[in-house]
Design a protein around this nucleic acid. Sequence first.
DNA 1: TTGAAAGCGCTAACAA
DNA 2: TTGTTAGCGCTTTCAA
Lengths: 342, 342
Amino acid sequence: MAIPSARAGKPVTIRDVAAAAAVSIGTASKALNGRGRMREETRDRVFAAAERLGFRPNPLAQGLLAGRTYTVGLVTGDSYGRFSIPVMLGAEDALGAGQISVFLCDTRDDPIRERHYVERLLARRVEGIIVTGRRTEPRAGLGSGLPVPVVYAMTRSADESDVSIIPDDEGGGALATRHLLATGRTRIGHITGPERFEAARERARGVKGALTRAGLEPAGEILFGQWSEEWGRQAADILLHTAPDVDAIFCGSDQIARGVAETLREAGRRVPDDVALVGFDNWEPMALGCRPPLTTVDMNLGEIGRLAARHLLDAIAGHPSPGGVRTVPGTLVPRASTRRST
Amino acid sequence: MAIPSARAGKPVTIRDVAAAAAVSIGTASKALNGRGRMREETRDRVFAAAERLGFRPNPLAQGLLAGRTYTVGLVTGDSYGRFSIPVMLGAEDALGAGQISVFLCDTRDDPIRERHYVERLLARRVEGIIVTGRRTEPRAGLGSGLPVPVVYAMTRSADESDVSIIPDDEGGGALATRHLLATGRTRIGHITGPERFEAARERARGVKGALTRAGLEPAGEILFGQWSEEWGRQAADILLHTAPDVDAIFCGSDQIARGVAETLREAGRRVPDDVALVGFDNWEPMALGCRPPLTTVDMNLGEIGRLAARHLLDAIAGHPSPGGVRTVPGTLVPRASTRRST
DNA sequence: TTGAAAGCGCTAACAA
DNA sequence: TTGTTAGCGCTTTCAA
């Protein structure tokens, strides 16, 4: 598509303000920026003129001079946006507070498009880049030669010298498990997504760790499968056969948990009375639509975005964080699926 | 939060390129932009130097001169992002193709924040603004005094002179109804969201229109309620009592449809054999998780975003579309919930 | 064919 | 206290 030609409209420049206030451009600039000393009356006059004319300094010109743009790029894959959107909003939140604006780029998980967008962001002189998007495994970094700092959020760079902010999946698994233990459950099963997902493995590790510390074993095998309701239904069937005495199930996602809930209900097991259920994601439409509403682990995605933004701002300010992975703890959101009904 | 101070890093300027190629700055500029005539050899030398040094023209400087920024603002409410994200991506798609970059702003549906962000975007000299976000009713426009064109997507400006791109809700309702009629259903019920939502009213109107044209009436009352699964369950119960002979139900959202599916199953009605079911949104995790997978209407959100972007680009190019509402037709996505099993 | 100079809107020196 | 000047990186006359 061709670049459309410029539109009319002539913004008010500082030159106009200066003329209207009958001062020089330099004086107008100083007045507006509160630099140097000057007569109260002059400053007022300039402000009045600026106000009246609706003057807004042109940030391009300011940036050109300062060598800054006050912009960062936000590169996201995961078009579906379920995970990366809350992260984006958190980041936008933290950056917006610092008067930094955000360029949005959607790569559709295509490395070519990603490369292309990064080029474009660099051409625009963004001062930093946040890369977000859920991945199975650590992803290749953007490259080390970049002239601006990069922070990875909700995805992990394979390069250990990069800063990556991800959820504490192991901690989340342990959190859910401890919650179930605290409600008196001891035969706890775990149904989760594909084993090739680092997140699934980490959550499972958290489960095993918490159980071991309590002197327990998981009920049945840990079942790796898909991130779908359908898998939840199948896996629940399996678990009910291999570990009929199961009294709690922690699921790797809210979707899986919904499938599990259905199978349990159809098998005549009451939730939470006979079997308590915990999900993961706190994806509200899913968790609230479940019968009963689902206790689940919230990954605090917004916080992940905010933290990523803060690391980026620090790096831009010349105080880069040491590379490595930082995790954000999850929060347990208790609902009816684990409520003691006694 | 304070604005962080500038970071080191010294980008390559055209001055550097000119020096390396042993030509003047003006010549280097002409060579790089293919303007004017010049010796092949000189042009090559400049290109080689630019390549070697990794030169990228500073768009701030270019924009300063051209009086353009090649940026637009994307203002979104609807933090949850379920609707506005696909719209955003569609818009970003169309704009990105034209080398326009997108500033993302999330207003959290707060008019103060919105105002604030619009100011900021204007200060940054964006060349246009897209406003997106699901609303119950037409929203107040951003104001008519804006120096740049504005297009509303997935939300309707109350000002008829503004351009708004929204889904064809009435057409979607009719589409779903005709699909049910085509599969031989005649006792068709409709369960939907709150009547205060224009979208709910429009879809219902589409249903009634299609039925009337077929010489039919809705089965039972049209049930307005909530956009939730819980309401779907309740409403299905009601409908099964008031219109026990119902053989199809069209729901105003996929979430409602899931609730309906559950109640039907528990009431011993088979889907689609006894009662066919159609949802709205094509929200895949919901529609695919349903038992059976849900036939539903896709609003083509990406297309809405793309269209909004195209209108904006035209307006920026000096060819504003006449104000008014433009609708994007939905698409029926057939799945098992309406499949003939005979 | 190439180079020099002006200027986009702004700020920061320095001069008056 | 105010005005003048230079220059940020680039494009575009116009002159050589």
